[in-house]
Design a protein around this nucleic acid. Structure first.
Length: 482
RNA sequence: GGCGCGGUAGCCAAGUGGUAAGGCCGAGGACUGCAAAUCCUUUAUCGUCGGUUCGAUUCCGACCCGCGCCUCCA
């Protein structure tokens, strides 16, 4: 049964199907590489990755393309401030983005086009739009899209039902393009921006003079070149991109090419932090490294970010991460019992985590059903823990245990969860603490419990916790993992 | 003002016209010299008020509250 997914355009649940024998054409608006991505960005990318994985396990191949925005106001400004060329500046942040994605177990897209590498395609697209009367150049050397020339403008976000009145400020409180009085209409958006002094050396030659492409244009151009002129099956992004970005993409692409840009729109809701929108001023904007520094693993973050369903705003807190970490540990225990039964080692689990041969019926059927029903990751995890809670391992023989591992592994693949990955870095234990701990251990070994307990108490007062096992002990900071 | 999404246990969060998954935390118990870990048990009537219905948390209406977008944003 094909995966069902809510489509923003038709506002309905629809099956996600590619043309026969074709990979599903899936395009995602990628990051602007001017700094480290924050966890809100990653929620969207993680959800897209999860959807792709679900489709693959379901037997639907996907051609996944996600662009890099490596030219815009922020990248140019960042490069100038850093005293780097735009290319060097964006390269370092692209590498950081890739490293973070890898840590979060995101499959790399099959194609990752960059805006800078598609300047000629963007210029050609503009020329085409001008020729067709959908765009116009101004005396100053900018080019705008003529919104009034596209009858269906606004269909994705129901713009006709909105009051499209000019505003003097946008929601960030900034003036709206004060210098763009030259536009025919306020709703017209820029395709080509004339060169400005603050752009430095970051400009390209064009038929309209030196300048650079507008943001919306790059996606239209890259989609066209990555998918060789075919209509997309699926296009994804955060809800905020719905308008104007995706609306403008539709206008540009459909006017230029005379065919639908995309059949199905996938928008994920925003991540909130501590009940509020993330922002630097509130101090609640986290990057992956911020959370690592607090001792959380990337996998815990992945779990936390996919634990809520994608159409719902997810409220992220540090407590959420604790919960994720504990939940992951529980899955690892479950895996261990199954591996034992199957006569295999922890390291053998990897072989089971794959998209092929899902065998997702039986025990994990309801988890799988949830994923196929509008990517309900939350319900899927619930169903998974239903199985974990009634741990079937003890009653299985070796071959049954292996089958269960296959099904479990396919589910882990779909969710993008890997187990037994990295150990959370433990803080270094100071020598004096180490010495006290050793002293306590020796006291315990000689059954001097009074002394052992007293030393335990001393260590606890100093903020360190002793955890014994049969023949060894560990010392950990007793600060609740944060 | 326009468009959209929500309000479910201490926290996070699914879901259904017939009295509500799951995770975390907490509590109790088992185990342990004591702890830790682990295991078992345990914690809700679903924002408010009406309506429809044999029956609503689930459908309809009104209201209250929170959040997002309205050309910066994943």
């Amino acid at each position: 049964m094909p995966v069902q997914l809510y489509d923003t355009h038709s506002r309905s649940l629809r099956p996600l199907e590619a043309e026969t024998e074709q990979a599903l054409r899936f395009y995602c608006c990628g990051p602007t590489v001017y700094g480290p991505a924050h966890i809100g960005n990653f929620r969207t990318f993680l959800l897209q990755d999860t959807l792709r994985r679900v489709l693959e396990v379901d037997g639907q191949p996907v051609h996944h393309v996600r662009n890099l925005t490596d030219v815009d106001d922020k990248t140019i400004k960042g490069a100038m401030q850093a005293g780097l060329t735009l290319q060097d500046f964006t390269r370092q942040w692209t590498e950081k983005f890739h490293a973070d994605c890898t840590a979060l177990n995101c499959l790399p897209p099959h194609d990752e086009p960059s805006a800078v590498e598609h300047i000629p395609q963007q210029i050609a697209l503009i020329e085409q739009l001008i020729e067709q009367g959908h765009a116009y150049a101004t005396d100053e050397g900018s080019v705008y899209f003529r919104v009034s020339s596209f009858e269906n403008y606004g269909s994705l976000s129901r713009l006709k039902e909105r009051e499209l009145k000019p505003q003097s400020k946008n929601s960030a409180g900034q003036r709206n393009d004060a210098d763009e009085y030259e536009r025919e209409a306020v709703s017209d958006f820029v395709l080509w921006k004339q060169r400005k002094p603050e752009d430095g050396e970051n400009f390209w030659k064009s038929p309209w003079g030196e300048g650079r492409p507008g943001w919306h244009l790059e996606c239209s151009a890259m989609i066209e070149s990555s998918f060789k002129g075919a209509t997309l099956d699926l296009h994804g992004g955060g809800v905020d991109l719905c308008f104007p970005h995706h609306e403008n993409e539709i206008a540009q692409s459909e006017c230029a090419h005379g065919r639908p840009l995309c059949k199905h729109w996938f928008h994920s809701a925003h991540l909130m932090v501590d009940g509020a929108k993330m922002s630097k001023s509130l101090g609640n904007l986290y990057t992956l490294d911020d959370l690592r520094a607090k001792g959380f693993s990337p996998m815990a973050l992945r779990y936390a970010l996919i634990a809520g369903s994608y159409r719902q705003q997810l409220n992220f807190t540090i407590e959420t991460l604790h919960a994720a970490q504990s939940a992951l540990a529980k899955l690892e225990r479950f895996a261990t019992t199954l591996l034992d039964k199957a006569g295999q080692k922890t390291s053998d689990l990897k072989a089971y985590i794959q998209a092929s041969d899902p065998k997702l019926t039986g025990r994990f059927a309801s988890a799988w059903e949830a994923l196929g029903n509008n990517l309900n990751t939350s319900a899927a995890l619930g169903a998974l823990f239903g199985v974990v809670g009634s741990n079937p391992a003890p009653s299985l023989n070796e071959s049954e245990a292996r089958d269960t591992l296959s099904a479990f592994g396919a589910l882990l693949y779909a969710l993008g969860l890997s187990l037994f990955t990295e150990q959370v870095a433990k803080a270094n234990t100071p020598d004096d603490i180490q010495a006290l701990a050793q002293e306590r251990w020796e006291a315990k070994q000689s059954k001097d419990y009074a002394r052992a307990d007293s030393l335990r108490k001393t260590l606890l007062q100093k903020g360190w916790l002793i955890k014994d096992s049969v023949d060894s002990y560990q010392v950990e900071p007793n600060d609740g993992q944060t």
